[in-house]
């Protein structure tokens, strides 16, 4: 066994800068949960299969159990805690999950919501099949996915409707 040589990294989480000397063995998910106390990011498997640990790293969803904390130098990370200002100002995707019973125990929900957000960013009006492909990396043991899909459809509708007034006069809506 080699002695632990710490590694210094600077990164941003939910808009806040951090600088930390990390054990190279530390996984990003454990740093977020244990060091930064951002426990909304969950751990289901630790091996890349369940998606409970999903976060947005430099604009793209990743499974934070497969990323070393030492490897995030210069990165910008968004976790579920950074998605809304607070319980009164939920993100439209969160709002839609609440309204449409898109969660039961809530274990998969942070990852599910971040994957849904990522999908809607690149594809604002996805088909059911595209939604199912978009959340293929997130396992849910409770809902059977039907209400999750419905929630994402509702979020898509809400966001495209929301945008309409400001887009009026600019470009016709396809």
């Amino acid at each position: 066994m080699t002695d632990v040589v710490k590694y210094l990294v600077s990164f941003e989480v939910n808009g806040e800068s951090h600088r930390r000397d990390v054990d190279p063995r530390l996984l990003l998910v454990d740093m977020l949960r244990d060091d930064l106390r951002l426990t909304g990011t969950h751990v289901g498997c630790s091996t890349g299969n369940c998606g409970a640990c999903t976060v947005v790293l430099d604009g793209k969803t990743v499974k934070s159990c497969c990323v070393l904390a030492a490897d995030v130098e210069g990165s910008r990370i968004l976790t579920i805690e950074g998605m809304s200002e607070g319980p009164d100002q939920l993100h439209p995707v969160q709002e839609a999950f609440v309204e449409n019973h898109g969660l039961q125990c809530g274990y998969c929900t942070p990852g599910m919501v971040l994957s849904a957000r990522q999908l809607l960013e690149s594809n604002p009006s996805p088909s059911e099949e595209e939604i199912r492909r978009g959340i293929a990396g997130n396992l849910c043991r409770c809902t059977g996915y039907v209400f999750i899909v419905k929630s994402i459809q509702a979020a898509a509708e809400a966001t495209t409707t929301d945008k309409r007034p400001s887009a009026e006069g600019a470009e016709p809506n396809p």
Partner: peptide, 11 residues
Amino acid sequence: MITESYEFFAP
């Protein structure tokens, strides 16, 4: 958590 320690390099 990974149990065995190692040195990390980011060239």
